[in-house]
Design a protein around this nucleic acid. Structure first.
Ligand code: SF4
Ligand code: SF4
Lengths: 137, 137
DNA sequence: AATTAATACCACCTTAAGATAGTATTAAAT
DNA sequence: ATTTAATACTATCTTAAGGTGGTATTAATT
C-alpha cells in the first residue's frame, strides 16, 4: 500500500526542483544534502529520470539537472511510471493483473471504486499542485 | 500499492474457508493444493493466523484449522493487521507516519480522501461480503 | 593543457520478504 | 502401545529492492 522508496525519492526531488524558478539548475550533491537522500542512490535515480525525459542533465563543471517541462506538465503518474511501468495493474490490492467481469479477484467489487479514484488523482495531480513543505522526512 | 504476498495468501485462504459450512475443518495440505500456495509457507501463515485468533488450530491426526469466528465478523483490516500492525500508516503513499495539519507530506491533501475510502472499505468488508470465485490466480 | 566539479557507468554489498527443509509435538485410530 | 496424519518450531536458502564504492566521461575554469 505504499510507493516504493525509489519512487518516493523521485517525487520528493522533483517536487523540490519544481518549487524554484523555471530553468534553475540543481546539482545532486546539494539536492542529496537538502533532502537527506543518499548521494549515490540519488545520482542513480536522477540518471533514470533524465533518460525518461522528465529532467535534463547538463554535464561538466557547471552542470546539474533541471526540469524538462513545466511543473504543471509533470503528473504523479508520469513519475511513477518511470520506475513502475505496470502501475495501473499494481494499484490492485491482490495484484492480479488481467481481469474482466468474468475473471476478477476476491476484492474487485470493493476495490474498483477507490482504485479509480487513486488513478484519477495520480493523473490529475501535477508537480505544481502539490505541497512543497516538509519534503524531507 | 499492493498488499504483500503473505497478506494476499491469508486473505485467499480465509476467503476459501469462509465459503464452506461453519465449523468445517481444513487441513493445510488440501488448502495448499486447492489454492496453489506453497505448503510450507502456508503452514507458517496458518500458525500466525491461529495465534491471532482468526482461526482455531486442532492438532493431531484428524486435526486442521477452522475459522474462529463467523465470516461476517472477520474484516479485511483484521487480517491485514495481523501481518502489518501499522496498516493505518502504511496506507500512506509516501509512508510518513506521524502527521498533522502542520506536518504533512507533499501528497497529503490529494491522498487523504482515497485513504479514508480505503480504510473504510477495509473495515467494512468482511469475509462473507467478498467474491469467492477465482481464489487461485 | 591541467584542474576541477559535475554527471554516467559498472560492479558489488546489504537487508528483508518470500520460500524451503527438517524435525518435534500432538492426538486420533488401530 | 504403535502408527499415522495433522500442526508447530527452528534454521536455512533465494531473490529483488535498496544502497555503496570506484572509476570514466564531460566541459567550464584557470
Ligand atoms: S479483479 Fe479487480 S481488484 Fe482484482 S486485480 Fe483485477 S482489477 Fe484489480
Ligand atoms: S501527511 Fe497525510 S498522506 Fe502524508 S503520510 Fe501523513 S497522513 Fe499520509
Amino acid at each position: 500500500m505504499q510507493l516504493n522508496n525509489t519512487v518516493q525519492y523521485a517525487i520528493r526531488v522533483l517536487s523540490y526542483m519544481s518549487a524554484g524558478e523555471e530553468e534553475t539548475l540543481y546539482n545532486v550533491k546539494a539536492l542529496s544534502e537538502e533532502l537527506e537522500i543518499s548521494y549515490k542512490f540519488l545520482t542513480k535515480i536522477m540518471t533514470v529520470l533524465s533518460k525518461a525525459d522528465l529532467i535534463v542533465s547538463i554535464r561538466g563543471r557547471v552542470g546539474g539537472f533541471k526540469l524538462a517541462k513545466k511543473p504543471s506538465q509533470i503528473a504523479l503518474i508520469d513519475i511513477i511510471s518511470v520506475f513502475d511501468p505496470n502501475i495501473k495493474e499494481d494499484i490492485c490490492l491482490l495484484g492480479l493483473g488481467e481481469c474482466d467481469s468474468a475473471h476478477k479477484c476476491a476484492l474487485h467489487d470493493q476495490w474498483i471504486k477507490p482504485k479509480a479514484d487513486i488513478q484519477k488523482m495520480l493523473e490529475e495531480t501535477t508537480l505544481d499542485g502539490i505541497d512543497k513543505n516538509n519534503l524531507k522526512f
